[in-house]
């Protein structure tokens, strides 16, 4: 069973549906017992870093999330959920993240439009990574974000070019992050989730 963490961050219907479509038995839950029994956890998120981190803390679910990771079970953060996995973010002041991945989140300092919004192609940094098994370099996925991960080179699986190198998929042991929205990325997104499914013991 895949559990999508519900900590009051908006509509999770499309996230839930995307995991189901990719062949996974998934639920949205904030129940500690359900979370402890999960084979894999999904950390979604939209909006700003600090309110999301506050909501996650207030939910009381962080200890269960860390326990899950300690048990070597897969955790996947999506969009802002991925950003929360890093050490910190400077979105409206400096805020501490979960610290499960090395690196930090910072604002785009570029001449292109912000947010980085739309379909952008993936460049493979770690070609042999199992998450890339069913997609090809150049495949488009859907991004919407104004902040991005830096100092994350060691965990890079795939990136997107947007004047700067934007980490798109990161992975460290059993902790995974996707900056784009796989649930909004059509069949390519679905193939990435199918590859994620195969990483679940």
């Amino acid at each position: 069973m895949i559990v999508i963490l519900d900590y009051d961050v908006g509509n999770l219907a499309s996230v839930l549906q995307s995991f189901k479509k990719a062949g996974m038995d998934a639920v949205v839950s904030k129940d500690p017992g359900t979370i402890q029994a999960a084979d894999a956890l999904i950390l979604p998120g939209v909006g700003a870093f600090a309110p999301a981190m506050d909501a996650l803390r207030a939910s009381g679910l962080i200890p269960y999330l860390k326990e899950h990771v300690d048990k070597k079970k897969p955790l996947l953060g999506i969009c802002l959920g991925m950003q929360l996995l890093f050490e910190s973010s400077d979105e409206h002041g400096l805020h501490e993240g979960l610290g499960l991945l090395p690196g930090k989140i910072t604002h785009f300092d570029i001449s292109l439009n912000i947010p980085h919004m739309g379909w952008n192609g993936l460049k493979f940094d770690n070609e042999s990574h199992p998450l890339l098994k069913y997609i090809e370099e150049g495949d488009y996925v859907y991004f919407v974000h104004s902040y991005y991960a830096v100092e994350a080179d060691d965990t890079l699986v795939a990136s997107a070019e947007y004047e700067v190198n934007v980490p798109a998929i990161v992975a460290k042991n059993n902790v995974y992050g996707m900056q784009f929205h796989p649930e909004k990325s059509g069949p390519v997104g679905s193939r990435i989730l199918k590859a994620f499914k195969e990483l679940i013991p």
Partner: peptide
């Protein structure tokens, strides 16, 4: 809108 959000995999 809810039904479209559930069924559609593009924005």
């Amino acid at each position: 809108v809810e039904e479209v959000a559930r069924e559609l995999d593009i924005p």
